[in-house]
Design a protein around this nucleic acid. Structure first.
Lengths: 156, 156
DNA sequence: CTCAGTGCAAAGGATTTGCATGCCG
DNA sequence: CGGCATGCAAATCCTTTGCACTGAG
């Protein structure tokens, strides 16, 4: 819960550590960590919740729409950012799980907001076990799972 | 598992029961259960897995694209069909849970196929319990949840 | 008759791409 | 220099909509 209340000094440290990590990942795949890509990451970090593209470019008007899409794509392919598909027309973007930790989503059907939540590790473990059983039974090789709640948020 | 092997006599009975049920639902909301809508349902039943629109209209070329979208929309609003959003550009459609039962999806990242699976009721119950705890903690009012596995299917 | 339903063609809107230019290594 | 990165505008493609027509009650 202190995540939300992080002091700005900590914030800065967190960000620069993150940037270093991401820069490494991009370099590995032969990409540069340019200012535009850095901005995308920062907008997503500051937002603290999944965002759609119009909101991203609005958050930092320096970002051009097409470049934003292209860079999000690069970041997705490098495992830095993840696409989320809920209903609606827009794709949502958030930091990938290696950076943000494994979590799930509360999707509000009224206002469309998406909030991140984590499970007890106990439950998460049970779910994993169950998913592995199903996979074994069906010959499916799982990479990840997504467990999202659809409903109405506290504000709606 | 006998679902897949159902004899055609049973099939026919299943379908006409389903049609009756759906017809009732539509009538309740002041809609007709026309042949186009019936075809949509049949295509989805026969497919046995979620489908995207191009595949639906291809499966029954009598279906016009715009009418198909419109009718799927009606069926969705009447709780007969459900939209599914996985990655990719297309929306998937399948029979709604009241008709198909609560289940989850195995989504193949290679070929894009989606297969339905069910959990042990025990696990399903645990997940529900956990989700309720989270809801209580966050003030979120859940309607449904979706738990999908992403990975590679037996064929890929 | 009336009104929901249909099909065609055109519009809408999110995302992608072509191309000329800018910039880092 | 060379090639990735950028931004504008135009193209794409899924989905929705306008409109005139058809068919069921």
């Amino acid at each position: 819960m202190t995540e939300q209340l992080r002091q700005s000094a900590e914030d800065r440290e967190f960000l620069s550590e993150l940037h270093a990590q991401i820069g490494g990942r991009l370099a590995q795949q032969g990409h540069r960590y340019t200012s535009g890509r850095r901005k995308l990451v920062e907008v997503l970090v500051l937002s603290g919740q999944p965002m759609i593209l119009p909101d991203i470019v609005e958050a930092d008007p320096k970002l051009a729409q097409s470049s934003a899409y292209r860079n999000l794509d690069v970041l997705v392919r490098c495992g830095v950012i993840r696409r989320i598909n809920v209903g609606g027309d827009h794709t949502y973007f958030e930091l990938a799980e290696p950076l943000l930790g494994h979590h799930h989503h509360l999707i509000c059907l009224s206002c469309g907001s998406i909030e991140d939540v984590q499970f007890d590790s106990e439950i998460e473990h049970l779910v994993d076990k169950s998913l592995n059983e199903i996979s074994a039974r069906t010959g499916f090789t799982p990479t990840t799972h997504s467990l999202d709640l659809h409903g109405h948020c506290a504000d709606c």
